[in-house]
Amino acid sequence: MRIAVCLKQVPDAASTLVIDHATMRVVQAEPEPVYALNPPDRSALEVALRLVGRHGGTVTAVTLGPSESEAVLIQALARGADGAVHLVGREEPDAPAKAALLSQVLRDLAPDLILLGDRSQDAGDGQVSAWLAEALALPLVAGCVGVKVEGSVVVAERNLGRGYRQVVTCPLPAVVAVETGAADPCYVSVYARSRVSAGRVRRVAADLRGLGEDDATAVRVLGVGPRRIRPKRLPAPDPRLAAADRLQLALQGGVSERKGRLVSGTDSDVVKEIVAFLQEEGILTT
């Protein structure tokens, strides 16, 4: 089985972050920038290596980013990945463009399974997996916390929130996006990283112009600000409530019954009902 894992280097979450108002991005205010492998991507790598350990095959790590982001590929190789491809590009494009760039490399690799983190710790729009599946015309299973392969089918456990899990199957090849909890990553020693030869990384120039779409910045950032936290006085939560509800009470000030409506029927019926609901609520206006 051939598995490709998309990895992203992100600013280390523990570093001091400040807003650069000129570029409207969050930047590090550290003596030297500190980077890390995006935590869910790290879990994706771990899932890939364990699948290959069980079923045999190879793991290729792919990243898109500036030259210093090669560190995540070195980490992947030290952990046991068989190959690494670095799409070298300075600026960070938006999700569709990233997916388009990654899809060029991934098409050549022709993997049976593409694993990646559900969302990145910095940009965090969580769209790349969807755009990538679209670009490669592959099915997508997102939000996974457990991934198994049985024959030519991937069995994934998805996190529905509030402790609920959904188990789905999907034929291979497929794109599977995992959350951080999908696997406990293994420690990779500094020595092991130092022993990886940089020659094992294949470098490819990431050329946005080659994509034929210059709308690489379809999404524009209008403003960036710190999260506003207001202190508030709380009544003691009802001890009979479930722990999750008590937490929610503390965080949001109240628990209410979900007003959600379940729709069922054929796919087209369901879509029609959802669109009708969105129009009713004024979310969709055409």
Partner: peptide, 15 residues
């Protein structure tokens, strides 16, 4: 990992 990245075992920012 904090020792390597931040130069202290608590993972506190170098800054």
């Amino acid at each position: 990992e904090a020792l390597y990245a931040h130069g202290n075992p608590g993972g506190l920012p170098r800054s």
